[in-house]
Design a protein around this nucleic acid. Structure first.
Length: 215
DNA sequence: CACCAGGCAAGTA
DNA sequence: TACTTGCATGGT
């Protein structure tokens, strides 16, 4: 039950042929990626879209406007995304770090070497590996592979990884055997999300129609 | 009604 | 260290 290097390319080729180019993340600006990355934690993207829309309508999708918004008010704007009190706090923690360490300049954070920026993000309470890597890849175009529950579920359903397999192990599988290219990692992760949503739901797997059968 | 959705941190023993 | 719990809305 181990994933072979050649299978990573095979999986990518099949999914890319099936779904085509995706050009993720669905956001207008790097700052919007940052916000969305926190709001989508364990949450349906449909709910996140509602919350992002509320912030956009209020003109709050900038570092300065969101930083000056009281936490309690921010929580109300993002209510539809669920865990809204928790996420308001986490966003504030993140903005605070960018303010104190990078003078409120998101590009300052994203312009750091990947490992430095990743460490800075992980030190923020509420930012874990997936959120950090999503920000690095999709807001900063850093060549780092984003692992999520979909990635795990698809690989495990196809018996390519064991049930006990942590984030770093899965990320290393991809990064040890693929070219470190942001555009490739972007597309690969987007393809895995689409595949999970269409063919590999938690309670139902439509393996007969899945492009990955018999990999 | 039950279950699910692009996590993470804090508490417990 | 290993396991459990809290956080919460909205769609199916």
């Amino acid at each position: 039950m181990i994933l072979r290097a050649a299978q990573l390319s095979e999986i990518y080729e099949r999914l890319d042929a099936h779904f085509g180019p995706q050009n993720w993340w669905p956001a207008h600006t790097p700052f919007e990626v940052l916000v969305g990355a926190v709001l989508t934690q364990n949450t349906n993207w449909q709910n996140v879209k509602k919350a992002i829309a509320r912030l956009r309508e209020a003109g709050l999708l900038t570092f300065e406007r969101l930083s000056s918004l009281p936490e309690a008010e921010l929580a109300e704007y993002i209510r539809a995304s669920g865990y809204y009190n928790l996420k308001a706090r986490r966003l504030k923690n993140l903005l605070q770090m960018i303010d104190t360490t990078y003078g409120g300049n998101l590009d300052g954070l994203l312009g750091e070497p990947t490992n430095v920026a990743r460490q800075a993000l992980l030190e923020v309470s509420g930012i874990g590996p997936e959120t950090a890597d999503s920000i690095l890849l999709y807001a900063g175009k850093h060549p780092i592979f984003v692992v999520d529950t979909y990635t795990y579920r698809i690989l495990h359903r196809h018996q390519l990884i064991p049930e006990e397999c942590d984030y770093q192990t899965i990320q290393d599988l991809f990064m040890d055997h693929l070219e470190h290219d942001a555009a490739l990692f972007n597309q690969y992760h987007a393809l895995l999300v689409l595949t999970a949503k269409e063919f590999c739901k938690k309670s139902v797997a439509l393996c007969e129609q899945c492009p990955l059968q018999n990999v």
